[in-house]
Amino acid sequence: MNRFGHGSGANSWLKQLEGGGWSNNVRTCVYMKKTRHGSSNYMEKELQFTRILSDKAQENPVRLHYCDGASFSGYGQDEVAQLQFRGERIWRAAIDDLKANRVRYADQALLSGCSAGGLAAILRCDEFRDMLVSL
């Protein structure tokens, strides 16, 4: 979700990576796939921004919903358990979306996250910086 700022905050961006726990074996992944953290079928239709993700337009947050169980790094599948790991693709799609929007005009950007999203922020921070520098 994108919320554009205005005035002096129009070119400042916050990319928030939602947390949601890890699925570290097939059993936990099978359980997670039936929750909002494992499938877009169970996600909320609308999210309220709170705390660091304010609803104030001038603060310009972008939140990436967590649904891969592997800090946006999964890529593969388990056909027997009917699992698909697509965190890597989710991350790439989010970056492509940012590039297509006003982030190319960013004066500053912050990548943040909590829990599994915090680990993803650590894993992806250099790539996020390089993407901004290359625009």
Rank of each mutant, 00 (worst) to 15 (best):
A116T: 06
R124Y: 13
D126S: 13
T50S: 07
V30A: 04
Q48H: 15
M131S: 09
G20H: 02
V26R: 07
T50W: 12
C114A: 12
V30S: 00
W13N: 02
G118K: 03
A10R: 01
I90Q: 11
R3L: 14
Q84A: 13
L123M: 10
H65Q: 10
C67V: 11
W91S: 10
S12V: 09
A120I: 00
R102A: 08
A70W: 13
L98Y: 07
D130K: 04
A116R: 04
A81P: 00
K33H: 06
R89G: 12
S134G: 10
Q108H: 11
K56F: 00
A10P: 02
P61S: 07
S12H: 10
R3M: 13
V30I: 11
M1S: 15
R102D: 14
A94D: 13
S115I: 05
A121R: 01
S112L: 15
T28Y: 10
Q82Y: 03
R89E: 15
N41K: 06
A100N: 13
D130L: 11
R124N: 04
S40P: 02
V30K: 02
N60S: 13
L83F: 09
A100W: 04
R27T: 12
F128A: 08
A106D: 09
C29I: 05
S54H: 06
A116Q: 03
S12C: 14
I122S: 12
K15L: 08
G19Q: 05
Y66M: 13
R63S: 11
Y42M: 01
S12L: 11
D68I: 04
K99N: 07
Y42V: 01
G113V: 04
Y75I: 04
T28G: 06
D130S: 10
D107V: 15
G19A: 07
R3H: 12
G87Y: 13
G5R: 05
Q108C: 14
A120D: 00
R92C: 11
N11R: 09
R51M: 07
S73W: 08
S134M: 12
Y31Q: 14
R3K: 12
R92W: 08
I95T: 03
E79K: 09
M32E: 01
S23H: 03
A121S: 13
D107H: 15
W13G: 01
L111H: 05
D55F: 05
V26H: 03
Y75H: 13
N2W: 12
A121K: 01
D68L: 07
R104L: 14
C125D: 13
N24Y: 08
D55G: 11
L110N: 08
E46I: 04
R104Y: 06
S40M: 06
S12F: 15
E18M: 05
Q108S: 15
I122R: 15
I95N: 02
M131G: 07
K45R: 14
V62R: 00
A100I: 07
V62C: 12
G21C: 03
R63A: 10
W13S: 02
D55K: 13
K33M: 06
R124W: 11
E127T: 07
H6T: 07
D68Y: 07
F128C: 08
